[in-house]
Design a protein around this nucleic acid. Structure first.
Length: 519
DNA sequence: CTGAGGACTTAGAAATGAGATG
DNA sequence: CATCTCATTTCTAAGTCCTCAG
């Protein structure tokens, strides 16, 4: 069937994803179909009434072929495209802020497509519409070179607002939320904000003892709000849970954080596996990542939880008197600038520093040191529950690495045998030639051992990292000065820990960190 | 106090690119 | 040189937290 332009484009969005799990989900299909029909002409709408009867295979093939063709392009063609993209970056990827040229983080408008919400998102599959210049607000100073809208178009608005950091914004149609064009993480603006974040977290160090003392006291408070606040804060501190801001029901996937936990998300065991007062957590957090943990808690916490759960239904709030704004007001009174999320930053960075101390040995070799760093990083990722789907090829790549190790082992055994032989020969006669052969064999054994060790460390690291994502904590929770100081103290080149863009993002820390930096 | 909107950080998946391997 | 493999970059959704109006 030949479709109108609008209907064809939206059908294409769906066809493009035909090999993705999304297109098998009922909610996704229904949302897509509803929105697709809105784009159809009356005539099309009369004919196309049932998604099950639509066959997108031809379109799917078309896109597959297109991708195939792209893959098979000649080197020159690929180079040309690369250069063209480079030109676009040069033209649109930068802005001038306070006389300084800065890179923009996301300078391209988000293209139309089907909304890919995470988890059981009620709006998955809805049409995300194309943004027109008429939807976009430009924020730049009056005397600057105001960007030209595309020919024949006008911006929604051009205004100078120096109280915000965004350069352009628009409202997205699926959730009705604002989207922004902002600076790259390596910009001065973002760097200063980042530094401030870690300084607030460091400041918590000198308040944490008093705060912990206080919430333990509050477990016995006469006021229910104070008790709930104290137990919630205990979880946030001990388990690095997120604050848990309330969300509008039915608008997003059903996920929770600390303050929004419901009765159904925890189970109480007076005794479990030989431990007393165990709380079992099982809920979906941000991005619908499951949080599952069994934690022994203090007796009074356990008793409080029991109390909070009394006479409640499964889907009632555990902390029914508490919300994040109440909690944060309290935190702010304990320390200026303190909010729930600061505890995550604080505990993440404290954990890294302490783990690095515990795990690294300055006499270890380079791969071992890096493994130690990754393990410290991993401890933080586990604390913060940063998970990833195991790579689809994980088992295969593990097996490949293992067979590589085995062949190296054989090589090493052979090299050792040859070394032995060379030793014998060299003993017999003092021929210079035999001596050099002996040296060569020694070196070979050494090299084989080194390579084998490297591979083994790599295998350990990869296995331990199967379902764990290190990037998020590295980028957002770990004070970079801890890593910089550690690298300098351990003689580990910084680029073993941070790649190029990470070094750019953390330039402020690389510049200022002293060897004796303590978080 | 509540709810909505706005601005910003944090998040994992997907696309892309660089380097290793045969 | 083609292909495969892994690391990096890009993308944009999904949180946090604040302000403002009523």
């Amino acid at each position: 069937m030949t479709l109108s332009l609008a209907a064809e484009e939206v059908a294409g969005f769906f066809a493009h994803m035909l090999d993705h799990e999304y297109t098998t989900k009922e909610v996704f299909r229904n949302n897509f179909f509803t929105d697709w029909r809105k784009e159809m002409t009356l005539k099309e709408r009369m004919i196309i009434t049932d998604l099950e009867k639509c066959n997108f295979n031809e379109m799917f093939e078309f896109y597959k072929n297109k991708m195939e063709a792209k893959r098979n392009m000649s080197k020159e063609e690929k180079q040309k495209i690369k250069e063209a993209n480079q030109k676009i970056v040069e033209a649109f990827g930068f802005c001038l802020m306070d006389q300084h040229q800065e890179r923009i983080g996301n300078f391209k408008i988000e293209p139309p497509g089907l909304f890919r919400g995470r988890g059981d998102h009620p709006k998955q599959g809805k049409l995300k519409k194309r943004i027109q210049p008429e939807d976009v607000i430009i924020n730049c100073s009056r005397d600057s070179k105001i960007p030209e809208p595309p020919l024949g178009h006008k911006w929604k608005e051009v205004k100078p607002d120096n109280t915000v950091t965004w350069l352009a914004s628009w409202t997205e149609n699926v959730q009705g939320s604002c989207k922004y064009i902002m600076l790259n993480a390596n910009s001065k603006l973002k760097g200063e904000k980042d530094w401030e974040k870690y300084e607030v977290a460091r400041n918590l160090k000198s308040h944490i003892d008093a705060i912990r003392e206080k919430y333990k006291q509050d477990w016995k408070s006469k006021q229910m709000v104070a008790r709930q606040r104290a137990v919630a804060l205990y979880f946030i501190d001990k388990l690095a849970l997120r604050a848990g801001t309330e969300k509008e029901e039915g608008e997003t996937a059903d996920t929770v954080g600390c303050c929004s936990l419901r009765v159904e998300h925890i189970k109480l065991y007076p005794e479990l596996d030989g431990q007393q007062h165990v709380v079992e957590f099982d809920f979906l957090g941000k991005d619908s990542i499951r949080y599952y943990n069994k934690v022994p808690v203090k007796k009074s916490v356990f008793k409080n939880l029991k109390l909070f759960m009394e006479n409640k239904q499964n889907d009632d709030d555990l902390f029914d008197r508490l919300n994040t704004s109440l909690l944060n007001k309290h935190l702010n009174s304990l320390m200026p600038g303190l909010t729930a999320k600061v505890f995550r930053t604080f505990n993440a960075s404290v954990t890294l520093q302490q783990q690095l101390k515990e795990l690294t040995d300055s006499s270890a070799n380079m791969p071992e040191k890096i493994l130690s760093y990754n393990r410290a990083n991993r401890a933080v990722a586990v604390l913060c529950n940063h998970q990833r789907a195991p790579p689809k090829t994980f088992e295969q790549s593990m097996a490949n690495l293992q067979s590589k190790i085995e062949s190296r082992m054989e090589q090493l055994a052979l090299a050792k045998k040859e070394l032995k032989l060379a030793k014998k020969e060299a003993k017999k006669s003092k021929d210079d030639k035999l001596q050099t052969v002996l040296e060569k064999k020694k070196k070979l054994v050494q090299r084989c051992e080194e390579q084998l060790m490297k591979l083994e460390v790599q295998a350990t690291d990869r296995e331990e990292n199967k379902q764990i994502a290190l990037g998020t904590s590295k980028l957002n929770y770990l004070d970079p000065r801890i890593s910089v100081a550690w690298c300098n103290n351990m003689g580990v080149p910084l680029d073993k820990i941070y790649n190029k863009s990470q070094r750019e993002k953390f330039a402020w820390a690389i510049d200022m960190t002293e060897l004796d930096f303590e978080f």
